[in-house]
Structure formats: structure tokens, C-alpha cells
Design a protein around this nucleic acid. Sequence first.
DNA 1: CAGTGGTCTAGACCACTCC
DNA 2: GAGTGGTCTAGACCACTGG
Lengths: 242, 242
Amino acid sequence: MTVGNEGGIRTRARVHSWQSIREHVLERIQSGEWAPGDLIPTEQELAQQMGCARATVNRALRELAGSGIVQRRRKVGTRVAATPMRRMTMRLPVIRDEIEAMQATYAYELTGCERRAPTARAAAALCKGMPEELMMIQSRHLADGQPHCCEAVWLHPELLELPECTHFRMEAPHDWLNRSRAVTQTRFAILTEGASGTCAVNLGVDDGTPLLTIERTSLVDGVAVSFARQFYPPGHRLVFDD
Amino acid sequence: MTVGNEGGIRTRARVHSWQSIREHVLERIQSGEWAPGDLIPTEQELAQQMGCARATVNRALRELAGSGIVQRRRKVGTRVAATPMRRMTMRLPVIRDEIEAMQATYAYELTGCERRAPTARAAAALCKGMPEELMMIQSRHLADGQPHCCEAVWLHPELLELPECTHFRMEAPHDWLNRSRAVTQTRFAILTEGASGTCAVNLGVDDGTPLLTIERTSLVDGVAVSFARQFYPPGHRLVFDD
DNA sequence: CAGTGGTCTAGACCACTCC
DNA sequence: GAGTGGTCTAGACCACTGG
């Protein structure tokens, strides 16, 4: 596993770069010399063996821990992870960017806006001091005129200073949210669902068509202020890479 | 965005911890003082302002860059990212662990094993020196006797020393692969598909039922040696968290 | 060529946790 | 209490890149 490459910089590895230490350790793990569950030498020992500073070893092992290759605990040491459960990073989809990256023309359309009682899922996501009604905004995003994604966004009216519905004819809810409040945290779930009702119509697909669904909860200072469900028609792929 | 929390360690923040520097910078960004696209002060300037070492500022900014909050370039400086495109980390699903985490009993079943010409997708993933036939292994994983996931794994027969089919009655392909070769890299795609054929039967669902699909390519030393497609019935959720 | 981030070092102290 | 990782510092040099 090539971890990160630190922002794409690729340079001649110095003899004692933290990358070279990381590779050294990785090779010992992959060769089986250090098996899953084993403790590997301490930072101090490794630094002596490799002839570098402990801070350099620390950096290398910290990166490996970040990738889930090893687990570290004070006083105990560094252990090769039992299951090679890797962690991968994913760029969060920003719909406009997604579409423009395909060299397509982006368009946004408001398809519904009203106050209504939340669904069970929306209520579960926006649990804090739930009022009886939330603002729900339905919209779709088009690439070169073809439906690309359809979404429903629930906004918490008491935690946000909501504009009139007409505002969302021009600006997508997430753009507005990012402008107006500093979202400090986001939660995601990916699942699949059969198309139904408004969404099927807006995407131009038959009822029951499998849709890739992304549920997204935005938090400001630890409190959930919005919950969105985004639906993508078949063919859409979320790609992860090392 | 709380970034990582470095392995779950939470401790009294020292006055000049890199975490506190990170929070300081984050606040300035979230308050709008440093707007998207802006250059923020250099490491040296920040170190002086905050009264800490440059290395500490470097660590804080490196973490923010890792989360996609800022972008850094030598000679240019550190810029607040134009789009708040966050990066999130995801634990890769290891099916047995997934099931055991639910307090359910894990079971594995081989449902098919043969050599055959690859599908277009398998061929695209395993592009290197593609032979005419690949080994394809179909199986399913059960939680407390209920189908949890159904998968098809394509293995490259010339890059791997494949055992007989009977071997895969006892051991799942990925377990075997992880034991026999050091997988150095993995690629993922998440999509959705309607159930069909064998898979619908093995999962006990009707044809056309939306299935969450994970495509997974395993690489050894940069060369793809296996390609897997895993199908999950409705209700399954992949969860991401900050 | 000069400015900025990227990294290494050597030493120090602290925090967590097992014994 | 003692061992191990987690972090900070001050200083240094290097690598990339814009002018």
C-alpha cells in the first residue's frame, strides 16, 4: 500500500527519509518476518538499526498506523494489525465539480420546497430539539441537460436562518449551507434503494430502478443542521483509490 | 471538522499543541477571516504569531491539508481550499469482521469455481498480460444462516499459484489471497445493480432487487492479480465518519 | 535566485498503561 | 514505577517553483 504520497510530491528518497523507513517496515511485514499480531521493534530500536532519528521512525510508523497496517499503544508498542483492514480516503462528491470534471455543463433545478414533518430517517439524523416541521428542499442536478442526481435536503429551521423557498431556485441547498454556516463535520452513509415517486420522475427512470443513495448529515459545532439524501441512477460509480 | 483524533488519544491540549494550532487556523477559516482561495500566513509567520516552533505549525497545516481544508504548494504558500471538498476515511469492509461485529455467527459457502473467459469488467481491471481464461470463484457469506453478501472473485492464474477448487470450500478467496501474497494496493468502486441470475438466488432475493455493489481490485507490486464483485442486499449501509 | 513548504536531527518532557 | 509512544523545540538543509 502506497500511503498518500503526501500531496503528490515525488522526489529522490533520501537514505533516511521517513518514506524509506516506512517501506522498510512494510517489506518486513509483507515478507512475513513480522507477522500479524506481532510486536515490532520499538521506535528507539528501529532508529538505531536504521541509523536515523527517532522522530523519523515515529513519522513512518504513524503513517502506517493511519493506513491501518499497524496499531500502536503506549507502553505496549507497535503491533502488526491482525486483519489487514485498510483505511482508504475518499473525496467527498461535490455535485457541481463532479459534473464539470466530466466536461459537461452543469445545471441545477429546484423541484420542490415546503415545510413538513420529517421522515423517520430525517428525524433520526437531526435529533437535537426536533421541531414538528422541517424545511424540505427537493432538487435535481443535470449534466448537459441529462439528469445526473436527484436530492432531498432537510434543513433545521430553528438552527438555521432559512431564506424563502424562492431563494433555492437559484442556489442549491448545500451551496447555501456552505456559504452561510461553517459546517464542521459530515457523516455519510452509502446504500441502495429502488426508485420511487418524485425521484423516479425527476431522474427519468422507471419505478424500482436501483439507485445509488448517499445520505449526508452536516453538523455545525456538533449539532446536526441538515440531512440530505442524494440519488444517482445506475451507472454511477464512487471510486476510491489508495 | 475534527480531523482524525490521531488514533483516539484525547488528552489535555497543551498551549502549543499542534491540535490547538489546527483549531486556531480552522476558526479563522470558518469565521471567514481567511476566505476560500486566500493565502494564509506562512509557517514562519504563524509560528511567530502563535509562539511555537515552525515544526508544530507544519504538523497542524499538514493535517488540514490531509483533510482537504487547505492546499499547500512550495514557494506559493498555503491556500484555503476553494471547494470544501473534504476527504473522509473509510474502513474497508472485511466481511467476516463485519458479521462478527453484529454478534452474528459467520459462515462461508463456495457456490462455484471454474476457469472461464473474463467479463469485460474483469478484463479491464486485470489488464496485464491477460490470459484467455481466469479462475472465477463464486461464494456467499452468511450471518446467522441468512445470506449477507454474495461475491464473485476473478483470480489471475499466471500471477498467482492457484490451489485446486476444492481448497476454496474451506477458505474464502480473499483470505487465501491475503495469506499467500502481500497485497500492496487496493482499488474500490461502489455502485448499484439489479440482482440477476446466480446472485439473486444465492442472496434469496427477486431478480431486479437493487444490490449495493463493491468492486475491488487487489494489486501486488502494482500489478492487478484479482478482481472481485461483492453484492449486498437492500438494507446494507456503508458508513463513513469524520 | 529567492521564498516557501518538506524534512531531518538531537534532545527533552509528557502521557498513557502495564506490571 | 518503568517502558513506550506522542509531541515540542531550535536549528539546519533540501526541494520545488515563481519571477
